[in-house]
């Protein structure tokens, strides 16, 4: 044990450094570490759709979205004021960190962002209509690690 330990230590250090670098790069090619989601965000917003990474929309979009939850893309997603305020503050504080996120997209939809449209240009119309996909809002239909905040292309599996 004592004989191998310096080498093992060095190896372990290298492996964990590589692991961290990998984790940092895994978010859709962005060079930031993945943000741990606020538990109340995961619980409340994640009940109906993937708890989208706050970095994927600019602060102005999150502010508009959280200001009108009773009319949330055609659905009543109202919350009590304290919880709404908590989510709004957290989303705004962590907004817009993704590389190409700029001005608010049309209707504050991630899926209408120029970068999103470009990145998904090779996905066929038939794929979007698959019952396993159904909506471009359902990231995890193809991004198998989306729930973990990982949108790396290598983890994409398009259903048939």
């Amino acid at each position: 044990m004592t004989l191998r330990s310096p080498v093992l230590h060095a190896l372990a250090g290298l492996v964990s450094a590589l692991g961290l670098a990998h984790a940092a790069l895994a978010e859709g090619g962005n060079s930031r570490p993945r943000l741990p989601l606020l538990p109340s965000y995961q619980q409340e917003c994640g009940a109906c759709h993937l708890a989208y990474p706050p970095g994927a929309l600019p602060a102005a979009s999150w502010q508009r979205i959280t200001a009108d939850l009773p009319h949330h893309y055609g659905v009543d997603a109202s919350l009590d004021p304290a919880l709404r305020q908590e989510l709004s503050a957290w989303l705004t504080a962590n907004a817009g960190t993704w590389k190409r996120v700029g001005a608010p997209p049309p209707q504050d939809r991630i899926t209408r962002s120029a970068w999103f449209v470009r990145e998904h240009g090779e996905v066929s119309a038939a794929t979007w209509k698959l019952s396993a996909v159904k909506s471009a809002a359902q990231c995890s239909a193809c991004h198998t690690q989306a729930e973990q905040g990982d949108f790396n292309e290598r983890n994409v599996r398009i259903p048939r």
Binding site: C48, H49, L50, Y73, G74, V75, V133, K134, S135, A137, Q138, A141
Partner: peptide, 8 residues
């Protein structure tokens, strides 16, 4: 079940 809008 399956959310009618998002598919979740």
């Amino acid at each position: 079940g399956k959310h009618a809008a998002t598919g979740k």
